[in-house]
Design a protein around this nucleic acid. Sequence first.
DNA 1: AACGATATGAAAAAAAACTCCAAAACTGAA
DNA 2: TTCAGTTTTGGAGTTTTTTTTCATATCGTT
Lengths: 275, 275
Amino acid sequence: MTHALIASLRAAAGDMTPALARVAETVLAQPDATLRQSITELAEVSGSSEASVMRFCRDQGFSGFQDFKLALAKELATDERARDIGSPSDDIQRLVETAIISLRETEQLIVRKDVATASRKLLDASVVECFGIAASAVTAQYLAYKMTRIGKFSRALGDAHLAVMAAGTAQSGTVQVVISSSGSTIDAVRVADLARSKGAFVIGISNRSKSPLIAACDLALIASWPETPLTGGAFPSKISQLLIVDALVAEMTRQDPKRLVELSRTAEVVSDRSF
Amino acid sequence: MTHALIASLRAAAGDMTPALARVAETVLAQPDATLRQSITELAEVSGSSEASVMRFCRDQGFSGFQDFKLALAKELATDERARDIGSPSDDIQRLVETAIISLRETEQLIVRKDVATASRKLLDASVVECFGIAASAVTAQYLAYKMTRIGKFSRALGDAHLAVMAAGTAQSGTVQVVISSSGSTIDAVRVADLARSKGAFVIGISNRSKSPLIAACDLALIASWPETPLTGGAFPSKISQLLIVDALVAEMTRQDPKRLVELSRTAEVVSDRSF
DNA sequence: AACGATATGAAAAAAAACTCCAAAACTGAA
DNA sequence: TTCAGTTTTGGAGTTTTTTTTCATATCGTT
């Protein structure tokens, strides 16, 4: 919560403008070196300008470069333990270790207040639609399933056309959850825009904080963007999304404890389908 | 080590010259306030001069005021950290920690040889069917998606009746993957039995090693069964299943590296669906 | 009191941080 | 394609902060 600087930086880096992205990469590559640099030096090393570094700091929510460096110093001071662990001897171990880092980062990225707000909206919704395509369809399905388990009807839409149609009929009581790892999937943004224009409350779940999807949402929940972006990062980013889903569901049962009763009731209903 | 700076400062404060001692006292009284002050402000507040503050920093072994502030920030951060650890962790933190344990356990449970065998079978299969119901449907869908990504066609069946029908038409080249967390779901076992009787190779994924499903399979892959069985355990056991799926897919690309080419090709195909 | 050594702060100099603005790059529409 | 409007960007200037310099004050010793 307090020490989410590096993680949120990585989540934001992807959708920054070129100059800002260069600054972000430079900082991420050598965070400790940044501490010893002046704004002029960092501008030079990253191939941008002082003004861009300044903008970078502001965008991250700091009052200026000084403020940013102070926060970074704090982060690095506590971060020393996270660096040692991990002797990745085989593929699966490596997968597990990156997944763990990603989960921890996501835990820090999750804004508790936003989870509470989102949960409230979901509980109060007359209709809940979950949309995700490709890999994100899995997350959407998981959310819909979990909500059904606590007696809150919702459906997952894995088809872009269906989702667009559904979004088109959204009303003010509708909550539309849109999931996209990159946050740049055209269909996802379209669904978000459309649902919002119809008066629905739109919750975005993504691994990128600065993305078209997030810009189009009423509320955004960000999962960690793992260091290894290609194949190796798919699993960590996926389970980080699922963590957010579970956080939402946990919060919903906390806000409305009688949902736990629903949970055991749904368990009863399916018990005759087991040995 | 933890309080190196503050401690040595307090120790040194006694026999400093008056002006420097005032600076030291001011810093010790409000270390966190110092972080937000400029050298001029600190000089003013401590009733000394900028030059004295400068000398103070140098005497402590720092190159200047900035350097001192950075070190102080780190020190205070570790303090905050220590306080955080003592405080009761919230729901999300607890979720993450149990998930981590579960992932590590699953990594231990995964029999590498079985993963290799299963991957071989999947690669050689003429048809791959993935079946999972309720929460396990998510895992099935994830597996089907990932296999499609590496150019190996497979489909997920989330409907028990459809799955039974599909299993009934299985042949010797068919690989049937059946997922059930408890391993006791009637429909899952039925699908496994039926597919096997038709000559299919049946791979079971479950969180229970001694279960009807596992007994009915040719090969079993076991994910960890977390201690907390109710709500708290659902998330860990789910992502442990996904870990197994990713382990399978990683092994498949290892055995058949040209699959990686397929991966980037599928990425290209969908790239025009992004901004 | 005179001397030398140390301590101190005012002010100048240097550096760093921050702001502003016009040029460049990019966007989408005609 | 051109063109208008927007966004992005870095240069140049301004302000603030840090650092150095140096003259003066202070103190202990003889």
